[in-house]
Computed example of a mutant assay.
Amino acid sequence: MIHWIKKILGLARRERITTELIEQLPAHRLCRKYIDGELATDMESEVFDNIMCAVELHAEVVNGGFNQYYYNSGGERTERAENTFAKLGAMQIADVVKRANEQYAASRDELHSIWDGTKEGFSHGYKEKIFDAFDDEYYALMKNDKQLYTLIGTYIKQHPKDFLTQ
């Protein structure tokens, strides 16, 4: 309970990332601790930011599909998310993201002219079913959050030197 209170108040000391920690924790828990900021890491690093691109895409797509992802992100980090999934070894997911990115690029001008901040504008992509096939494929491949966390945690375990705390 005390640790939880310290965490809320920002007084909790983040745990160092060591070889032992990487080896001991199950992949999904290692990832959660990493992305939740419980581990001392450089949150400004490229590797952390790339992983967060994939986490952000996943969260948006699971919540409201690719339409919501592109609406909220403006497509700014789509290529990095795609590349991160490939780096994590999730080639099928990277392919779905790549094709969704291509569809977004082809539809960008139309969508941006309609996405005017209203519910109707936001719903246009859903009504036109622009991203439905990609949503279905993504959901079939990525069944739950734990699957993503395991992918990331496994990557950390395979590349520990990129994550160890000095």
Rank of each mutant, 00 (worst) to 15 (best):
M1D: 13
M1A: 15
I2H: 10
H3P: 12
H3N: 14
W4V: 12
I5T: 09
I5S: 12
K7W: 15
L9T: 05
L9M: 14
G10R: 06
L11S: 01
L11F: 11
A12S: 15
R13W: 04
R13P: 01
R14Y: 01
T19P: 03
T19H: 14
T19K: 12
L21H: 01
Q24K: 15
Q24F: 05
P26Q: 13
R29S: 11
L30W: 07
R32H: 06
R32I: 12
K33L: 15
D36P: 01
D36K: 14
E38K: 09
E38N: 06
E38F: 14
E38M: 12
A40P: 03
T41M: 12
D42S: 02
E44Y: 07
E44C: 06
E44N: 14
S45W: 10
E46M: 12
E46T: 13
E46D: 12
V47L: 07
V47A: 06
I51Y: 06
I51F: 08
M52I: 02
M52S: 00
C53Y: 03
A54T: 00
V55M: 09
V55E: 01
V55S: 09
V55L: 05
L57T: 02
H58P: 02
H58K: 00
A59M: 10
A59L: 06
E60V: 00
E60C: 13
V61E: 02
V62H: 10
N63H: 00
G64K: 02
F66A: 01
N67G: 05
N67P: 03
Y69Q: 03
Y70H: 04
Y71I: 00
N72C: 07
N72I: 03
G74Q: 00
G75E: 08
R77E: 04
R77A: 03
T78Q: 05
E79V: 12
A81K: 03
E82Q: 09
E82T: 04
N83R: 06
T84R: 04
A86Q: 03
L88W: 04
M91R: 08
Q92M: 14
Q92L: 13
I93N: 04
I93H: 04
A94T: 09
D95K: 05
V96N: 08
V97G: 04
V97I: 03
V97S: 06
E102W: 07
E102C: 04
Q103G: 00
Q103P: 06
A105D: 08
A105F: 08
A105R: 12
D109W: 04
D109L: 11
L111Q: 03
L111V: 07
L111E: 07
S113A: 15
S113T: 03
D116T: 06
K119V: 09
H124C: 02
H124R: 11
G125Y: 02
G125L: 10
G125M: 10
K127C: 09
K127A: 13
E128L: 14
K129G: 05
K129V: 09
K129W: 10
K129F: 10
I130D: 00
F131E: 04
D132S: 13
D135T: 05
E137F: 10
E137S: 15
Y138Q: 05
Y139V: 11
Y139F: 15
Y139R: 11
A140W: 03
N144D: 15
D145N: 09
K146A: 10
K146R: 14
L148S: 02
T150H: 12
L151Y: 13
G153D: 01
G153W: 11
G153M: 11
T154V: 12
I156T: 01
Q158L: 15
D162H: 13
F163K: 08
L164I: 11
T165V: 11
T165P: 00
